[in-house]
């Protein structure tokens, strides 16, 4: 019995340190890996391990949502966008910052990290997580009531935000199609050259060229 208690008391710090180290290493790899597809995969793994941190923090639904949205949605989005950009996959074409700039950025980031970490250690947080006083609840009913009943307006706002971003995204993606001149070419034939200032008498060769270009598009 004694042994079990000791194990359970040591278990949480060990688990936290393990998961935190994995998260940090994966975040560093997601930023620094040469191949950008692997970087996206490492970001997905990092999001999954952040979900483990949320489980340590007694937030099961947030952990599930982290996996569903970050790992399932955002990482898929990033990977798919990388697949759409063949230039981005070629690591030899990627522009990297100069070493001096990189060192400078690392220095600034390390300074911010160390200062805020020191502040987090020194600052007298109200360490009031006393289980005798505070009752933690991971009851999903209360969370659902908070989200849907007390603050339902926020959920509707989220729906509006998502619809707005979706309409903007689809409009941006299809804008090119709307401005494409293929329909005009179909309607007016060869005359739909962009430079209609000079009305050259078109020879047969140009017709052939135009046709082949249309086929390429």
């Amino acid at each position: 019995m004694q042994y079990t208690d000791w194990f359970l008391s040591i278990f949480e710090p060990v688990e936290f340190l393990l998961v935190a180290a994995i998260v940090l290493v994966l975040a560093y790899l997601a930023l620094e890996h040469k191949e950008i597809v692997y970087a996206a995969f490492f970001f997905g793994f990092m999001a999954s391990f952040v979900a483990a941190i949320f489980l340590l923090l007694e937030a099961p639904f947030v952990a599930g949502m982290q996996i569903a949205v970050y790992t399932g949605g955002i990482t898929a989005l990033i990977i798919f966008a990388v697949l759409l950009l063949p230039r981005a996959q070629d690591s030899s074409l990627e522009l990297f910052a100069t070493p001096r700039k990189r060192q400078l950025g690392f220095l600034i980031a390390a300074l911010v990290m160390i200062l805020s970490g020191l502040l987090a250690f020194i600052f007298p947080w109200a360490e009031s997580f006393d289980d005798a006083v505070v009752t933690i609840s991971n009851n999903l009913n209360d969370l659902a009531m908070w989200l849907w009943s007390y603050n339902g307006v926020y959920v509707q706002l989220i729906a509006l935000i998502m619809v707005t971003s979706m309409v903007g995204a689809v409009a941006l993606l299809k804008m090119d199609k709307a401005e494409q001149l293929s329909e005009i070419r179909g309607e007016f034939g060869i005359e739909a050259k962009p430079d209609f200032e000079e009305a050259e008498p078109s020879s047969n060769e140009e017709v052939a060229d135009e046709d082949s270009e249309e086929g390429d598009d």
Binding site: L77, F80, L140, A144, V155
Partner: peptide, 25 residues
């Protein structure tokens, strides 16, 4: 890519509906 964007939107909607199935409100 449009379908990926649609998938993300439906994904978030599913996550919001998921908490309803996880509770009994």
């Amino acid at each position: 890519f449009i379908y990926t964007v649609l998938f993300v939107v439906v994904d978030v909607m599913g996550a919001f509906l998921w908490i309803l199935t996880a509770s009994d409100i």
